[in-house]
């Protein structure tokens, strides 16, 4: 991948908002969340690093957790977005769209010129 370092940084910075986005509307448990993120191309390279990320989001009050029994194995830790989490996501989404538009515009003008 070109500019691998840039994408490592981008991934690191944006992943937590992807997690928050997946938690809007429905609670999910860790494994489910990791699988959902892993299915998207190029977003997660090491699935295990999502768990420390989730722990940090909880410490920061952006997600909440609760335990629920599962039919097929050990109890599951479910994550839900808090109002603060949804707020942070909304703010990021607006900034991100502006950022993407700007970068795209420059990249395209470079290609044309």
């Amino acid at each position: 991948m070109v500019a691998e370092k840039v994408f490592t940084q981008l991934r690191r910075g944006t992943l937590e908002f992807c997690v928050l986005a997946l938690l809007q509307g429905e609670p999910r448990y860790g494994f489910e969340l990791v699988k959902a993120l892993g299915e998207v191309d190029g977003l997660v390279t090491t699935e295990g690093t999502i768990y420390p990320l989730l722990a940090r989001l909880r410490r920061e009050g952006l997600v909440e957790t609760s335990w629920q029994e599962s039919g097929s194995g050990p109890p599951r830790r479910y994550y839900t977005s808090t109002p603060e989490g949804s707020q942070a996501l909304a703010a990021f989404t607006a900034d991100w769209q502006r950022f993407c538009t700007s970068v795209d515009k420059i990249l395209q003008s470079g290609r044309r010129g």
Binding site: G38, T45, T46, E47, G48, T49, Y51, P52, L53, R56
Partner: peptide, 16 residues
């Protein structure tokens, strides 16, 4: 393998 090397996971936990 998909989980990643333990050292990488711990590095993510020590981040910041």
């Amino acid at each position: 393998q998909r989980l990643g090397r333990p050292s990488e996971i711990v590095a993510a936990a020590t981040d910041g």
